[in-house]
């Protein structure tokens, strides 16, 4: 469970998030939807404790990110924007490094890596250096890296960026599986179709504020329109934003 209450973040004079509140429930995929620069990444970075909130409270699994960031980091897996891997390390070495940093003991780690390689279909690249990986391969390895300590919460920042259609479909399938296992998944995106096919719950943010939230059918009912894209456009304030 992720709880965000009246969260605000300023970078100097510039407000990046103002008064944002929402819930992301366990066993569900919550979509954080908004145009570029809306504050999605800032929100996810606060939840992954690499940024401090200016005001408000954010809790992951009941733990405040400002009070005990280390405890929060133990129960989250993150896939930040860009999915940076270490180019001189192989896929498995990249995953193992994060497993060790998360305190997973070596026998358990070896077993989990085997499972992840099979589950995420990483067999071909497992022992290759990350240097020449395609965007899709990089994302898969980064996802495995985020899952290696079996975190109950997943924070994914635009995970489908740069992926082809097949890879996106595959990723969706995995994310649904992961949610079914009871995990709380928060995923940001600026691509409407992607979220509509995936999220149980939607939080639409624009200019650092919540524009709308609810499940897709609730939102459709409220805005009197079946098309999510239209809801998005009207929620963020028309075509010009």
């Amino acid at each position: 469970m992720i709880e965000v209450d009246a969260l605000s973040k300023r970078f100097g004079e510039i407000p990046a998030l103002s008064d944002v509140s929402f819930r992301a429930r366990d066993g569900q995929i919550t979509g954080l939807l908004g145009p570029n620069g809306a504050g999605k990444s800032t929100c996810l970075r606060i939840l992954s404790t690499v940024l401090q909130p200016s005001r408000g409270i954010a809790r992951v699994g009941g733990i405040s990110v400002s009070e005990d960031p280390l405890a929060v980091r133990r129960i989250i897996g993150t896939l930040p924007h860009g999915a940076g891997l270490y180019p001189h390390l192989t896929a498995i070495e990249n995953i193992r490094y994060f497993g060790l940093l998360c305190g997973v003991d070596r026998p358990t780690l070896a077993r989990r890596i085997d499972q992840l390689v099979e589950r995420l279909d990483l067999g071909d690249v497992a022992d290759r250096k990350a240097k020449g990986f395609s965007q899709g391969e990089r994302t898969k390895v980064a996802l495995a890296r985020a899952l290696v300590h079996e975190p109950p919460h997943l924070l994914l920042d635009e995970p489908t960026n740069g992926l082809d259609v097949m890879a996106v479909r595959q990723l969706r399938r995995w994310l649904r599986e992961l949610a079914r296992e009871g995990r709380c998944i928060l995923i940001s995106s600026h691509v409407m179709q992607e979220i509509s096919a995936l999220a149980d719950d939607l939080v639409i943010i624009a200019h650092g504020k919540i524009a709308a939230k609810g499940n897709p059918s609730e939102l459709a009912a409220r805005y009197g329109n079946q098309d999510l894209e239209e809801i998005f456009v009207s929620a963020v304030g028309g075509e010009r934003s």
């Binding site: 970075r45 992954s48 690499v50 280390l70 940076g84 890296r145």
Partner: peptide
């Protein structure tokens, strides 16, 4: 280098001081 490769953010989100 870590920052430029964008591997710093996931690293800082690991439960390591």
């Amino acid at each position: 280098g870590e920052r430029e490769r964008k591997s710093l953010e996931p690293l800082l989100a690991t439960p390591v001081p």
